[in-house]
Design a binder for these strands. Structure first.
Lengths: 114, 114
DNA sequence: TAAACATATCGCATTAAGACGATAATAAGG
DNA sequence: CCTTATTATCGTCTTAATGCGATATGTTTA
């Protein structure tokens, strides 16, 4: 009965994570909660754009938010989301390692870190 | 050249997973490899559309492919991808549980099934 | 209650994603 | 070679996502 909902939520979570700005926002919020006024100066995008991205993460239940006076404070709702991202990274890392094994490590990996 | 950092690969993987058809394709390929000619009849989309989705998964290094005569056979490259999906589901499931705890299960889950 | 802040939302322009039919490419069988 | 089978790619259309300025909403402070 909740089966369908899990599938829908799964899709919503994955879509929410499929944008580089939103991944950076999660990174920025790892550790401590932040008000929008702290987030804005850290990102080279308009206020409306950031607000929208934050809302997408909120709607996907990845972020929590609460108001404190005139500030809105966002925080990670479920830290397991970082486990998820780490798992993605480990898959990505293995892909790079596989390249290395087949001898094509040089041109790819030297240019690529940072 | 085609340089890939972990961050870029991370994004590519997450984008590749952010489409419902592609998630179904992965599910269909779990367990055994399949040729395109087997995949096509299982999905109500055009051949060109399926081919394109398969290629996106291949480009993200999520699928492997090889040719066998005139067939192209796709398979899961790294089964860890299913671990990833299970983790997403567990996060989604926890979201549903949290709703239940706070008593807001009704309006959401009733509206969301179908 | 007016002014100042902080954030969300609206409207619109631009870009990217998805779908599909048509066509190209390649291998196998005659 | 020529034909058929199988899959990939192209061109195009439609729809969805992103970005931004402008404006609305709500809160605090004077």
């Amino acid at each position: 009965m909740t089966e369908k909902s899990v599938l829908q939520l799964r899709a919503k979570i994955l879509v929410a994570l499929s944008d580089p700005i939103r991944l950076e926002l999660l990174d920025f919020l790892s550790g401590k909660e932040r008000c929008v006024c702290e987030i804005l100066p850290a990102f080279p995008r308009s206020q409306s754009t950031i607000s929208k991205h934050l809302n997408i993460l909120y709607e996907a239940d990845i972020l929590d938010r609460r108001m404190d006076g005139k500030r809105t404070i966002y925080s990670i709702k479920d830290p397991q989301i970082f486990e998820l991202i780490r798992l993605v990274d480990s898959i990505a890392f293995r892909q790079i390692s596989d390249l290395a094994e087949t001898g094509r490590i040089l041109e790819r990996s030297l240019n690529n870190r940072s």
